[in-house]
């Protein structure tokens, strides 16, 4: 083996490292969206929330010097966007998908508008935990430099999976998502529950944005997201509204995304566009393989417009 490079081992290591590095925004956005969709609403606007979260986190980190304040700002901004979506969609005949698309424009627009002065300055990054310190190989150390948010995301996925089944809040969420009428019969106000669910979902998407600008890739530019928020929303359907599934889907997506550059770095250079499409192809193939008309969309919330 080469003294400096790690040769073919780079590929699995890059997939592991990529899964950890790239997946975190997907984890947060898809967990947030899972909560929202479980309540019976779909918020396609999380792409805009993600971008606005990235901008506000970066801006606050630049101004205060603290990435943690940036993170809080992003979560708060996301909460506001989510609450706004939740509030406006409670009115009859207002289409949640359409409002989401408008919010996508609005969030990105505001982020680009106010983000101009923050493209030049450098913000402090969120710190990472060196879980790879046991290894002498710098590449392994680098791949296992895990950001706190990744671990929080993993814990959150497990918690939500448990909470959806075993807590009163989880039960309320599922009842509201499955049938507004049943919820009302139980004395619940579906609009209030959905407002809260969309707000929390937005806050999580904002945190995902903070990860983008404050950790990986760790900079604020207008091209920071390249559609990750939209993709994460789609992954929720792929994961069948299961938080553990969301986590796994995000890992799969992040890992597959690292495949293209890693293969090129070990000399597989033909057809790299197709390797770059690997995450999408893989997801599509898995979806086709695991779907069947007889047990369609098990776990789909009954009130969700996109699956009706």
């Amino acid at each position: 083996m080469d003294a400096t490079g790690i040769g073919l081992w780079g590929v699995p290591l890059a997939i592991l490292g990529g899964a950890i590095r790239v997946s975190t925004p997907f984890i947060f956005v898809s967990l947030g969206e899972a909560i929202t969709e479980r309540s019976g609403r779909i918020n396609l606007g999380l792409e805009g929330t993600l971008v606005f979260g990235a901008m506000s986190a970066y801006a606050v980190a630049v101004m205060t010097g603290s990435p943690w304040l940036g993170l809080i700002a992003a979560a708060f901004a996301g909460l506001c966007f989510g609450l706004f979506h939740g509030w406006i969609c409670k009115f009859p005949k207002v289409n949640d998908i359409a409002i989401g698309i408008a919010l996508m424009l609005f969030g990105s627009g505001l982020a680009f508008f106010f983000g101009k002065p923050f493209i030049q300055p450098s913000a402090p990054d969120l710190p990472a935990i060196p879980l790879g310190a046991w290894s002498d190989i710098p590449q392994v150390q680098a791949a296992l430099d895990v950001n706190m948010l990744f671990l929080i995301g993993a814990a959150l996925a497990v918690f939500l999976w448990w909470a959806f089944r075993n807590t009163r809040a989880g039960l309320i969420l599922r009842v509201v998502g499955d049938s507004s009428d049943a919820a009302r019969a139980m004395g619940l106000n579906p609009n209030t529950v959905r407002l809260a669910a969309t707000g929390v979902g937005g806050a999580l998407a904002g945190i995902g944005g903070a990860y983008l600008s404050l950790y990986y890739p760790g900079s604020w530019t207008e091209g920071i997201s390249s559609g990750q928020g939209l993709m994460a929303v789609a992954l929720v359907i792929f994961a069948r509204w299961n938080p553990l599934g969301c986590f796994a889907a995000a890992l799969l997506f992040g890992g597959a995304g690292a495949l293209g550059p890693a293969l090129q770095s070990v000399g597989v250079t033909q057809g790299y566009y197709l390797f770059y499409a690997a995450p999408y192809i893989l997801t599509l193939v898995i979806m086709i393989a695991t779907s069947s008309p007889s047990r369609s969309l098990a776990g789909a919330p009954g009130e969700l417009s996109i699956t009706k």
């Binding site: 790690i6 590095r21 770095s265």
Partner: peptide
């Protein structure tokens, strides 16, 4: 010198991944 093509003129995450892959292969 190792070259990695990202396929796009501006694609933040892919550029970061490519940079990481290069460093993993020993580029300094």
């Amino acid at each position: 010198c190792q070259a990695i093509f990202t396929g796009e003129w501006s694609l933040a995450v892919k550029e970061a991944e490519a940079t990481n892959a290069l460093v993993d292969q020993g580029a300094d």
